[in-house]
């Protein structure tokens, strides 16, 4: 496994590197969609911690907005195009932008009329594909909180079929497009963005394997490797993700950070570090653990409370897991970050 890790070392994109003088090498995630579909709201809720209710007062985005997301573990750049503008306008240097693009997010307002956005989506995906065939295409069927469960499924299904057929008609290629039902009023937007980010992490299979090994060794039901500041999980085990468990883990991070910020602020002002940890016992006879891997990453896992959970046993396995993570993400100043 070590040899595989060495091979991945050269094209590593993630993690903090204070000496990085070439931020343009960061992967780029482009957000597009019709006006008022919720692009800016998503960006602000996920990355700027804006209250969902406050997004009602967000101005119409006029600028092509670039955000560099780099002070947490994840390290990429988002570009948001105003819905009123065509990103492929010659004056905007579309080739330069889309050649660097790794993921293309198209946000559709699920509560609005769909035909026109779908037509735009197809057009943009096809044009972007012609520029860069390595782009990961994602569709956020947004504002899903306003629909019933049946309507959500139906809407997603309709969009999926129309997009698939139209794209095939236009460029005769079966584009791999991923669809997410999202809302800023619940954790679905974080979950969807986690999937997007995971697509950008080249070490994802290794991380999944590490988590699987850890789960099996420690009798853990489900585990997530979180970027705690954005609550985006960059990896999970191979078991399917249940939304309720993901929300529980997000809540646990919030609780831990809240308590830590009140009672655990250190001399340097930081309210958490690589030694932070917490344990919460649920009335459903489950135990949740949070163990800080490094400054930005935390392992959150849940296991049944059957009397076999032994702190030393879990600590040992976590130590091995942590060592594995360090092997995966070799960085120059590992002393600081790992």
């Amino acid at each position: 496994m070590d040899s595989d890790l060495e091979e991945d070392f050269d094209d590593y994109h993630y993690g903090i590197d204070e000496d990085d003088d070439y931020p343009d090498s960061r992967p780029t995630v482009i957000l597009m969609g019709h006006k008022r579909s919720g692009k800016t709201s998503i960006r602000k809720v996920v990355f700027q911690k804006m209250s969902p209710n406050e997004t009602m007062f967000v101005e119409s985005t006029a600028r092509i907005t670039r955000d560099t997301i780099c002070s947490s573990f994840i390290n990429f750049e988002t570009i948001e195009f105003p819905g009123q503008m065509c990103p492929f306008d010659d004056s905007l240097d579309p080739i330069g932008i889309f050649q660097k693009c790794e993921a293309l997010l198209f946000i559709i307002d699920a509560q609005a009329e769909l035909q026109e956005p779908i037509a735009t989506l197809v057009e943009y995906f096809c044009r972007a594909y012609k520029i860069n065939q390595n782009i990961k295409f994602e569709v956020f069927v947004h504002k899903a909180d306003g629909l019933t469960e049946e309507a959500r499924v139906e809407t997603k299904f309709n969009i999926y079929h129309q997009v698939k057929e139209t794209i095939k008609d236009q460029i005769d290629v079966d584009l791999q497009v991923t669809y997410h039902l999202t809302s800023i009023y619940d954790h679905s937007i974080f979950e969807a963005f986690s999937k997007v980010v995971q697509n950008l992490v080249k070490q994802l299979p290794t991380l999944e394997r590490l988590l699987d090994v850890f789960n099996n060794s420690s009798k853990v039901t489900k585990s997530f490797l979180f970027d705690i500041l954005s609550k985006i999980y960059i990896a999970t085990d191979s078991e399917p993700v249940e939304m309720s468990i993901y929300e529980l883990c997000c809540d646990m991070i919030d609780v831990t950070l809240d308590l830590s910020s009140i009672y655990g602020v250190s001399e340097n002002g930081s309210n958490y570090d690589e030694r932070s940890s917490s344990v919460i016992r649920l009335k459903s006879e489950q135990i949740m653990f949070l163990r800080q891997v490094n400054k930005h990453l935390a392992l959150v896992f849940i296991m049944k409370e059957d009397g076999n959970e032994k702190a030393g046993f879990i600590d040992h396995n976590f130590g091995v897991f942590k060592a594995g993570i360090e092997q995966v993400f070799k960085v120059k100043n590992r002393g600081v970050n790992f």
């Binding site: 911690k49 002070s71 950070l257 910020s261 002002g269 309210n271």
Partner: peptide
């Protein structure tokens, strides 16, 4: 960098970071 998440230190008021979402 135009937007850098969580760079602002949480001092003084001790408002939990998650509170901003809720």
């Amino acid at each position: 960098r135009p937007e850098v998440i969580h760079e602002e230190p949480i001092n003084g008021t001790r408002i939990p970071p998650s509170a901003t979402v809720l």
